[in-house]
Structures are given as structure tokens and as C-alpha cells.
Simulated assay, not measured.
Amino acid sequence: MKRQQGFTLIELVVVIIILGILAVTAAPKFINLQSDARVSTLEGFKASVQGANTLVYSKAAIAGVDKNTTATDVTINAAGDTVSTIFGYMDDTETNFPTALEVSMETLGAAPATGNVTTTGGEDWAMFSDNGTVSFWQNGAPDSCVLIYTPATATSTPTYSAIPDASKC
């Protein structure tokens, strides 16, 4: 009686075919993970800005400057850090967001051209303030994957753009 040593060629081919079929059916589910992660990160960042703005407004109300129509500095922590507010909420001053959110952020000199937004110093976020709005991008994200913040006005609280879907990120 002869003992069998290992697998036959037929068995190996069948296993390779089964693995190929599994790979073809499962691959599409994993292709878009990076875009989904960018959307989730942008949603988290939006929530952070909203939370920081709530705290800034609370500090402004305590200081009695929540009705001011001109830029007013509000101290936000014991270290003496200040943010510039209008109607009690953060205005479009570029230094406000890195200070209030405590994140590494590069201020861009111009809106990014088509393509991915890359910071020069490896910061986590890039921002651009223009015409009363502030745009935020995650480092390495496409320029279409953006959150836009519009400061408060006499008739409205700050507004935030809708988070783009995964096809834009």
C-alpha cells in the first residue's frame, strides 16, 4: 500500500479557483474604504468645530460679549488662549480653529487647485479663509472633500456645509 504525500495537482487547482472566486466577490467591498474613512473623519471634525463653537459661545455669554457685532476676543482656557468672536461664535480668523480645536493645521495662502490637498509641514488639517468662510481639508484628501464654515451673522448661528459623499472623497 502506497502512502499519499501532499496534495494532488487537481486539489491545488480547485483551491486556487475557489480563492479566486472569493477574491472577486469580496474585493469591491474593500475598494472604497479610504473614501469612507475620509468622510467619517470629516464628520468627526465637523462635530469638533460645533462643540468648540458651543464652548466659545458659552464663554462669550459669560463675558457678556455674545451680542457684539464686531470682532471680540474671548479667553477660552486657563492658559490665556483667546479666539476672536462675532455674535459670540468664532469668526473667520485663521488662528481661531487651531487654538480652539487644539489640532495641527496649516493655513493655505490660496484655495487648493484640483487634486489632493497636501500640507507642507505634515499637519493633520489644511484651512483657507476667504470672503467670510473657512474651508477645511484633511491632509492628503481630494479638494472636493471639504467642510466649509460660515461664521454667525445678526440673524443666524454659524453654518456648516454638508459632508460630501464618499464618491468625492
Rank of each mutant, 00 (worst) to 15 (best):
G88W: 15
V103G: 02
S58Q: 14
E102N: 15
A111Q: 10
D66C: 05
T118W: 07
S135L: 02
S161D: 06
V117F: 05
G88I: 05
P142M: 04
N116A: 06
S144F: 05
S161P: 09
E94A: 15
V56D: 09
T70E: 12
A154Q: 13
W125T: 03
P164A: 12
S129I: 05
T153A: 01
G140D: 05
W125G: 01
P142S: 08
V74E: 07
C145P: 00
E123W: 00
F128W: 12
S129R: 07
P142H: 00
P98M: 01
T54G: 13
V83K: 12
T118Q: 11
T133A: 06
M127V: 00
T95E: 06
P151D: 09
W125R: 02
T93L: 09
A111V: 01
T85P: 14
N53P: 03
E106W: 00
L55E: 08
D73F: 10
T150E: 11
S135D: 02
G109N: 09
A154E: 14
G80E: 09
K59I: 05
G88K: 04
A113K: 04
T72E: 13
S84E: 10
T99R: 06
P158A: 10
P151F: 11
I76S: 14
A63E: 13
N139Y: 06
T69H: 09
G122Y: 02
N77D: 15
S104Q: 06
